[in-house]
């Protein structure tokens, strides 16, 4: 390995598309770059290779759901938000009324 190969190899593992004047002239570095490109291609292919989930996962999760009782429903969240807004508005109105009464 030539001295110029080392920094390029360090960069190749982080950025396989990296190329420089040295790489274009160095067969060793070109071979190295090709390996990294192949590695990345195979890794990307693994994305679409799904492993079947264990049988019965849906049922196990379903049983788990019924034990989870503290789930705020989306509609209930909305109701709480409306109620909170109402309380704040009421408090503001009472404050205004008191100020008027005291004047």
């Amino acid at each position: 390995m030539r001295a110029a190969c080392l920094p390029n190899r360090l960069r190749l593992s982080g950025d396989p598309s990296f190329s420089s004047g040295h790489v274009s002239e160095c067969l060793r570095c070109q071979a190295e770059a090709a390996k990294y490109r192949t590695l990345l291609r195979y890794l990307m292919q693994m994305r679409s290779q799904l492993v079947p989930a264990p049988a019965g996962l849906v049922e196990v999760v379903g049983r788990g759901l019924s034990r989870v009782t503290d789930v705020p429903k989306k509609s209930r969240v909305r109701e709480v938000a409306f109620a909170a807004t109402g309380v704040v508005a009421m408090a503001g109105a009472v404050k205004l009324w008191r100020r008027r009464v005291s004047v």
Binding site: L57, V61, V71, K73
Partner: peptide, 15 residues
């Protein structure tokens, strides 16, 4: 982890 993920997702789903 898959089981726990779905339980956590169920809890956080309204958000």
């Amino acid at each position: 982890a898959a089981q726990e993920t779905f339980i956590r997702a169920w809890r956080a789903l309204p958000k």
